[in-house]
Design a protein around this nucleic acid. Structure first.
Lengths: 174, 174
DNA sequence: ACAGCCATGTAACTTGTTACATGATTTT
DNA sequence: AAAATCATGTAACAAGTTACATGGCTGT
């Protein structure tokens, strides 16, 4: 995933690893888990190995030297292709889905607690997003959108927990 | 992730790799991407290496021999610990989030198409879920719940696409 | 002197993916 | 005779995580 974000940033202009990390985080406005700087460099190395980018050494007198990467034609094509194909969401890979299903199999008596704990987690995440939204200057339109998207997700998750709880207590009555 | 699902299934009784794969898929009712059988075996090998399970060879006359795994005390503890801690959802790792944010940076003129394509994808996934729900005998309560959860997610995603589209066209007017 | 930012990387490891390889038994 | 199901695995690779290692410049 990071791979394509780097290609996107490099499609604007050549940049170096340290800069890419900062831009990535700024673009995602703290909504994406922080990227380890090490991963940026390994990803760049792999992209260069695969002919997607080309790095070149830049000497600097006042600062440490750096290595600036630019997109190749292939890299540009790979980025465009990524944008062109829709992101898969048909199959779900949400950990809580798994947890619920297998808890029900193995420890059905724990379901109520499991759901309660998860609700607390979602509510906390919701609060964190509200804070982010409040502290967020409206200059960055896209980050506001991402925050709203994350909130819609969480609302759906919370609603689902309600459905689960209801269904489970109903079953127990039978 | 698969790791914990296997521990869950083994917490009921000892089982072998082939059986675990089938049970996993039955439990998730086609909602989780199919698991590669090879991964089941490598995961079991790693679990054994880490002392979570213990395998033993069973000779069979009528069928190929098999290797049955059972949980160790450590494995049981690891499973319980997994259940006890809430699944993280605070930070989002949805590919479309990334795509939108970086498309806006690099190719803002493509945003409309990007959203339209993604909407088609979500609607198609929605239809697939409806079919699943229809063909689904109500005997398996948990699978019904998972289907509902997936639908709630998709509804949130679709709603978000509407918000994005609106916001973007509004911006263009300015 | 020390903290913090600028800058680059490697090593070891985990999880998951794809493809390959083998072979028996059962059903059509 | 062929296809499907039962059964096990390995090899190579991709992506991501954590920790370690290095070193210069800037501001307090």
């Amino acid at each position: 995933m990071l791979k394509y974000a780097l290609l996107a940033l490099l499609s604007q202009q050549p940049r170096h690893g340290y800069e890419l990390k900062a831009l990535f985080e700024k673009t995602m406005g703290g909504l994406w888990p922080a990227v380890n700087i090490g991963q940026v460099y390994t990803t760049l190395a792999r992209l260069e190995r695969d002919g997607r980018v080309k790095g070149r050494h830049i000497s600097q007198d006042d600062r440490p030297d750096k290595r600036v990467y630019e997109l190749t034609a292939e890299g540009r094509a790979a980025f465009r292709e990524w944008l062109a194909q829709p992101s898969e969401n048909a199959r779900i890979k949400d950990e809580f889905f798994l947890k619920l299903a297998f808890a029900q199999l193995a420890r059905p008596e724990d379901l109520k607690d499991l759901i309660a704990r998860q609700r607390r987690e979602y509510l906390q995440a919701m609060r964190a997003l509200s804070d982010l939204a409040a502290n967020h200057t409206a200059d960055d339109e896209i980050v506001s959108l991402l925050i709203e998207g994350a909130m819609l997700h969480l609302q759906a998750d919370l609603k689902w927990l309600d459905v689960c709880e209801e269904r489970i207590s109903k079953k127990r009555e039978t």
